[in-house]
Amino acid sequence: MTSITGAYFYPEGRSESLPVTIHILANSQFSIVDHQQNIIATTSINDVAVKDRLGSVPREIILPNIGLLTIESSLSVNAWLAQSTTQSKIAKLESNKPLILASSILVPAVLYLFFKFGIPNAAITFAEYVPQSMVEIASRHTLLALDKSVLSVSELSAETQEKYQGHWIQIRQKLNLPSPDFNIQFRQSKTMGANAFALPNGTIVITDELVELLEHNADLLTAILLHEIGHVTHKHSMRLIAETMATSLAVDYFFGDLGALIEAFAGLSNTVIQNQFSQKLEWEADNFALSQISILDLESDSFARAMEKLAATLPEESKFQYLIQSHPLMRERIENARKAL
């Protein structure tokens, strides 16, 4: 017979506790004995409810209609209680070392595959089913907000704008692009500088500063325009929205109960993941532009030259920036464009 000392018994319906000794008997039986060697109860380990282990907190055993038994946690006590058939499945899994080791490898791997492939693939499907009415509303509201904040009316002459519009109508017809129709607009922006961006409904905004940087070269401007058309054609805006939403929900679901530390990690993870998605989308848009240039009567190095002019306005890049910025490194994009010649 094995005995466990240092236990306390709380009789049902009473607040006081009694110091007791537990005698472990044969056939999973055990007895609770007080200091006068009076037997308080004799029962089976399988007829009581063993609460899950929580660090070094005393273990609790509920004896139905009898009371509560508490014992200091130790290796021997935990080994004895592990024999209980009433122990929760979670507690048994937590004590299974091979399973813990396998989980420590498999869980991160599954999460990586989920974030790397599952969410992006689901986002592609999501983008195809977004109603056009929602795309139009989102695009109009976005442009309106930008017009009230960082954009202002273009200072390019009406003649210049009409010339580019006519040129791009011809480009559009040659490429036979799918819907939506593309609406090219000019804006001035000291905040954004030389830039161009596309909204989901096919509106493409080109800044005066970009036109000046490219020295009014229609081929170079068209190369940049093709890049933005690539974003619209591949529904990148809708995909990015879906990826960002799904990533946030997934991080909250998997890690939301771990407190402020995980909240900070979730925010960082979401940023890094979103940046990786954006890099992928930028490469897609670049390669779309390069494939379309070969169809048009443009100089073959138009996109590379346009990117080189943009790169000259930016600070020197480092490999570290590749990990934290949303776009691929400019020099890598230029090299990719040169290889396509």
Results as ranks from 00 to 15, higher is better:
L106S: 11
I45M: 08
S76Q: 14
L199E: 01
S74V: 10
S154G: 12
K280M: 04
E212F: 07
F126D: 01
L310H: 03
R305N: 07
P120N: 06
I71Y: 02
S103H: 02
T2R: 11
S237C: 13
D52K: 03
S154Y: 11
E209A: 15
Q165C: 06
I137L: 05
Q170C: 10
A312Q: 09
E243N: 07
S76F: 08
A218F: 15
V272S: 11
S3C: 08
P98R: 03
L81K: 01
A79C: 05
K89A: 06
V251Q: 08
L290C: 01
I119W: 00
A109R: 12
K280I: 08
S300I: 09
N38M: 10
T160L: 12
V251M: 10
E335P: 02
S149Y: 13
L75Q: 14
L106H: 14
T233A: 10
T222Y: 00
N121E: 12
W80E: 00
T42C: 11
V153Y: 09
G118M: 06
L177M: 08
E284C: 07
K319H: 13
S17L: 09
Q173G: 04
L268G: 07
Q170S: 15
S300N: 09
S104P: 06
F197N: 14
I124Q: 08
A109N: 14
I204F: 06
T86N: 12
I229D: 01
Q36P: 00
Q292P: 03
A260Y: 07
E12P: 04
F265D: 09
H35A: 12
Q325I: 10
H236G: 00
K319A: 07
H231R: 02
N336A: 15
R305G: 02
Q321N: 14
F303C: 04
I62H: 07
M1W: 08
V205F: 01
Q36M: 13
Q36W: 08
E284Q: 15
T233E: 07
K280N: 13
V77T: 10
V107E: 12
N287C: 09
K51C: 00
A260W: 12
Q274T: 09
A311I: 00
A145L: 12
N176I: 13
T222A: 09
V205A: 09
S95N: 14
A337Q: 01
E209V: 05
N195S: 12
F117P: 03
I71S: 00
P120R: 13
S326A: 14
L68P: 00
D181C: 06
S294K: 15
L75R: 13
A264V: 07
E209L: 06
S104L: 11
F320C: 13
I39N: 08
Q29R: 08
